[in-house]
Amino acid sequence: MNYIAKPERYETMKYIRCGKSGLFLPAMSLGLWHNFGNTSDFTNCREMLLESFDRGITHFDLANNYGPEAGSAEETFGRVVHQELKAYRDEMIISTKAGYYMWPGPYGEWGSKKNLVASLDQSLKRMNLDYVDIYYHHRPDPDTPMEETMDALAGIVKSGKALYVGISNYNAEQTAEAVRILKGMGIHCLIHQMQLSMIHRENEAVLDVLNENGVGAIAFSPLAQGILTGKYIDGIPDGSRAAGASVFLNANHVTGSVPVITKHLKEVSDSRGQSLAQMALAWVLQKKGMTSVVIGASRTEQIVENLKAMEKLTFCEEELRRIDEILYERV
């Protein structure tokens, strides 16, 4: 049976203007970093993507190296779009990125024009698309001149292969330079994707640069790889992500003060009538200039639970003060 999107899909989602642009993004976007590669169950991937769209998530965030295996998340996504979502392409914002390692040799990573153009061509083939809505440079390149990287992004917009461009993982100084160079080329930097959560606040300084320049912000890992779900308050459960050896989350990340901090944060979320994860998402979204948060999931139920954060996005001053006390360990 052919998929038909739910008519009420736009009724509960909040859409936020992305900086000084005409583009609105859903407050929550679905990221395909994990759990959408060719090692994952396709039926489950399909269900998560369709459920997300049915609930107003119109933005799907990918990168050339997402999987595992690298590239396979784009292939999975392209398969679902082709089979189920093709009729809704104009209602979707599809983003991808390049900059991390993808293929051997000097052209398979970083920020040269050769890498960025070739990588986008590969991504479009994997997703069976004519264009993406947003194309990011995934990480700053210390050796390639910034002018070359930005010229590649500007040329990609002018070629029609991307409607907008953005940057990711740039610090405040690098962000200001990238925005300036693109502006000189007649291209507006639409958005910056950064890691930001209640635990990882290092990029708050980047927000000031974005707000000054009318650039939107989108946060990845708003739940700190699952730490802010409260899963690790009482230790590391068997089978959890932190029980493994991932460089992104392992036992070293959930020891020390982390269990105490998350326990006290959960007390605040309980008083708000939210789960810790829902409060953590709402906390990121209340930051000035924040357009969206990228949520990840391994099953549909997680997406549904995270979306409940939309029911209470505002904080009173006392709640924010108490959260800061906890995060700076003045508990």
Rank of each mutant, 00 (worst) to 15 (best):
residue 205 A to H: 11
residue 173 E to Y: 12
residue 182 L to I: 01
residue 189 C to I: 00
residue 174 Q to A: 02
residue 188 H to T: 07
residue 269 S to T: 06
residue 164 Y to C: 01
residue 202 E to G: 01
residue 164 Y to K: 03
residue 250 N to F: 05
residue 212 E to C: 01
residue 224 A to Q: 10
residue 188 H to L: 00
residue 169 N to L: 01
residue 164 Y to V: 03
residue 212 E to I: 05
residue 264 H to C: 13
residue 150 M to I: 08
residue 183 K to L: 00
residue 198 M to S: 03
residue 161 K to M: 11
residue 227 I to P: 12
residue 264 H to M: 03
residue 186 G to V: 00
residue 204 E to G: 05
residue 264 H to S: 07
residue 257 S to I: 12
residue 249 L to S: 05
residue 170 Y to P: 05
residue 184 G to W: 03
residue 214 G to C: 13
residue 270 D to G: 10
residue 212 E to G: 03
residue 270 D to R: 14
residue 194 M to R: 00
residue 195 Q to R: 07
residue 240 S to E: 06
residue 248 F to D: 13
residue 249 L to N: 05
residue 248 F to C: 11
residue 250 N to V: 04
residue 247 V to R: 15
residue 231 K to S: 10
residue 184 G to L: 00
residue 226 G to R: 08
residue 206 V to E: 02
residue 213 N to D: 12
residue 156 I to M: 15
residue 262 T to L: 12
residue 216 G to C: 01
residue 240 S to I: 06
residue 200 H to V: 01
residue 184 G to C: 02
residue 256 G to H: 02
residue 265 L to G: 12
residue 163 L to C: 15
residue 252 N to W: 04
residue 255 T to K: 15
residue 186 G to I: 04
residue 252 N to D: 15
residue 231 K to M: 08
residue 170 Y to H: 09
residue 235 G to D: 06
residue 239 G to Q: 09
residue 225 Q to G: 00
residue 225 Q to C: 02
residue 265 L to R: 09
residue 261 I to E: 05
residue 219 A to M: 04
residue 223 L to C: 10
residue 185 M to W: 00
residue 256 G to Y: 08
residue 156 I to V: 09
residue 184 G to R: 03
residue 258 V to H: 06
residue 251 A to W: 01
residue 173 E to P: 05
residue 223 L to D: 07
residue 261 I to D: 09
residue 184 G to Q: 03
residue 262 T to W: 09
residue 165 V to P: 08
residue 261 I to M: 14
residue 258 V to S: 09
residue 151 D to Y: 07
residue 166 G to D: 04
residue 243 A to C: 11
residue 231 K to G: 01
residue 216 G to W: 01
residue 252 N to S: 15
residue 167 I to Q: 04
residue 195 Q to M: 12
residue 262 T to C: 14
residue 206 V to L: 03
residue 234 D to S: 09
residue 196 L to P: 03
residue 176 A to Q: 02
residue 192 H to I: 02
residue 222 P to S: 10
residue 273 G to C: 09
residue 192 H to P: 00
residue 246 S to G: 12
residue 251 A to M: 06
residue 152 A to C: 09
residue 242 A to H: 05
residue 173 E to K: 14
residue 153 L to R: 13
residue 176 A to H: 02
residue 182 L to F: 11
residue 160 G to N: 01
residue 159 S to Y: 08
residue 208 D to I: 00
residue 167 I to D: 08
residue 225 Q to H: 06
residue 237 P to A: 12
residue 173 E to M: 07
residue 192 H to R: 03
residue 191 I to M: 13
